[in-house]
Amino acid sequence: MKATRSDFPILPQELIADILCRLPVKSLSRFKSVSHSWYSLISNPHFAQTHFTQTTNKKPDRLILISDSHTLFSVDYAADSPVATEIHFPSVEDESYDVWAEILGSCNGLVLALNESDVAMYLLNPSTRESKKIPESPFALNSVNACNRCGLGYDSMSDGFKIVMLSYYDGGVDEESGATTETNTIVSVYSLKSDSWRKIQGSSYLHCAGDPSGVYLNGCIHWQALRGSDYISVIVAFDLGNEVFWEFLPPPLVTNAVLPWFYPPVLGGFLCLPAYTDVWVMKEYGKKESWTKFSFCKREDISTRINLVCLLEDGEFLLSRDEE
């Protein structure tokens, strides 16, 4: 390497930040070791937030899928000829543990997945291949006795990621002890910052229907559930900032029917519900009047249920359907 000029212009810190903000995560994690000032700049949560908003102004262009062989795949569908590439996580303790049962949620580029080997939840970053094992919630009930629901989301108020675990159990009389238990849902929240679980006030909804993995949008995690008072099917949102539940109604006519639950339901920032050959899109978040129906196919020979995969450019949807 040639000797450098001694009068090299010193770039002000805000310009360095501006430049680093445009770099991919891969480069950033490497550049943390350039110098003290770069390290503290890149590690700064405010920088991470700016970087995230800047890079996600683009549409998401990657799908994370689990194959039949329980390997995670990444598909860059914005490419001309999309190819699925395997993603492995070298940081998962044991190599034989790099097998995955289910994706439980995703938010801001992070994926929450259930590991097949040790049946633990892991928080995965497919960009940096970093992984973190999430400790088991001490408040969650055994899945034999309870219905467990979870979800991953980002809370801008505390500026951190949170995982929510709902353990719903049916009330009744215990045959041995004769003690009666009431139907209830235990709610526990994990914060990535403190790396710990916390029990909060329970939910009054019956969290026994629909897909177990919650869906993150607008600072809230959403599940399908039944309202405790009248058993009406609703969409329950858990506000991560205030840690409270609120609800809104699913589209008309879909109420009380078995909801073909979203998979994955957030497309281009809208909440979507596929209903056989139609898709309902909630155009204004939280307003039940804004559910709008889109019919995908008029062809009568297609009777199998369709699933939404993602939103492409020009408002096109990518769909999948079950083959008989």
Partner: peptide, 8 residues
């Protein structure tokens, strides 16, 4: 990066 970008 250290040599070229942050030489100073």
């Amino acid at each position: 990066i250290r040599i070229q970008f942050l030489g100073y």
